[in-house]
Simulated assay, not measured.
Amino acid sequence: MKKVLACMLVALTLSGCKTSPTGRTQIMLYPEHQMNEMGLASFDQIKSKQAVDTNQANNTYVKCIADALIAQLPNKYASQKWEVVVFKDDSANAFALPGGKIGVHTGLLKVAKNQHQLAAVMGHEVGHVIAQHANERVSQSSLLQAGLQVSNAVMEMNNIEHRNAIMQGLGVGAQVGIALPFSRGHETEADIIGLELMAKAGFKPIGAVELWRNMEKQGGERPMEFLSTHPSPDNRIQRLSDNMSSANNLYRNAQQKGLNPTCK
């Protein structure tokens, strides 16, 4: 029984191995069309529950940045139809979903002081989509659940005492030791993809660092990094700074090609 379960997990894992845009090995068990359907359904649900900003200036500004970024995506993403919506929400947030959906909160427009800073956030969110992080997270969740079920079955077959307490501990260990670092890894990867994307589109890469400095000034209590799905602002700024030289080269190439967005 144990061998059969283990073989099933290994087979599932190997069948879903792919490579991210940064060269990282990924486990993705779900077909892309299914993830797109999930993204479309989620976006429709958000639009039904959250007020949409109809301010023409805001929408034109956000779409201008989105169009510049989308034009630099790999062809299968650049050629698809994207929907960009500005939501009335005071939180400094944005998101992108599989299926070509981008949402930007009005609160972010107060923290991102110019097109370069806003492009950093939107590039980051689109980076999650082209790296297929949603698929990876859903797949990881499925594998973790299967692994915990296997552990429970093995302990049950061997009459292990205190099985419930052990299972609870395994659940916490999986969350802190695997799921959260996994999510932080996604955030870091999306930061780098977004930095390169904004630079290729003609936005100033330094805007990404400036944006996170603005975010840090917003304050608010944050959990310790090892208990958070996001890296700390200081770590994000440092990693972005480490990649600034190559991003500036991409920006200069974009300028030479005449890519100079003027989104206002």
Rank of each mutant, 00 (worst) to 15 (best):
G100N: 09
Y77P: 08
A68N: 12
N235C: 08
A94R: 04
T13I: 05
G23Y: 01
E83L: 04
S245P: 01
L197Q: 09
I27R: 00
T229A: 12
Q140K: 01
C17D: 00
F95A: 13
G123V: 05
H128A: 07
E210F: 06
L250V: 07
H105L: 04
M198P: 04
N243F: 07
N36Y: 12
R239P: 06
M35V: 15
R24K: 13
A11F: 11
E37K: 14
T19N: 00
T106E: 02
P21G: 09
D53F: 03
Q168W: 07
F95W: 10
L97W: 05
G207Q: 05
S142P: 02
P31L: 02
Q149E: 13
T13F: 00
Q45D: 14
S183W: 08
S139Y: 01
D242S: 09
E210I: 04
I46P: 09
L170Q: 11
S245H: 11
K47P: 10
Q26D: 01
C17W: 01
L170S: 06
A199N: 03
K200C: 03
N152C: 04
N253W: 06
R137A: 12
V126H: 00
P31I: 06
V84I: 14
A153Q: 14
K3N: 14
T188S: 15
G107S: 03
N253M: 12
T188D: 09
L97H: 02
K204N: 14
P233Y: 08
S139C: 00
C17S: 08
Q218S: 07
A112H: 04
S20L: 07
L240S: 11
M198F: 08
M157Q: 15
W82A: 04
H124I: 11
V104A: 03
H124V: 08
Q132T: 13
K18R: 15
G171N: 14
Q175E: 15
N158W: 05
Q80E: 15
Y251K: 06
L211C: 05
D234A: 15
V150D: 06
M35L: 11
N58Q: 14
G173K: 09
A120W: 04
N93I: 07
A51E: 15
A134V: 13
K204A: 14
L73N: 08
Q140E: 03
R24F: 09
Q26P: 03
L211P: 04
R213L: 14
H33V: 09
V209T: 13
T54R: 10
G185T: 02
A165L: 10
L9N: 02
L118D: 02
F226R: 14
Y77N: 08
V154R: 03
M35G: 01
G177I: 00
T262Y: 07
G127Q: 05
E136W: 01
A120E: 12
L143Y: 00
P261L: 09
K76D: 09
K49P: 04
V86F: 05
P31S: 02
V126C: 03
M157A: 15
A165E: 15
A179V: 09
G39K: 08
V52L: 11
K81C: 04
H128N: 13
N235Y: 02
V138L: 00
M122F: 04
I206G: 00
P74H: 10
E125T: 13
P231R: 02
Q218A: 08
E225I: 09
Q132H: 12
K63D: 15
V4H: 12
G177Y: 09
Q50A: 13
G219M: 13
M35D: 03
V176Q: 15
S141M: 06
V111G: 02
L143C: 02
L69T: 03
Y77D: 08
A71D: 14
V86G: 02
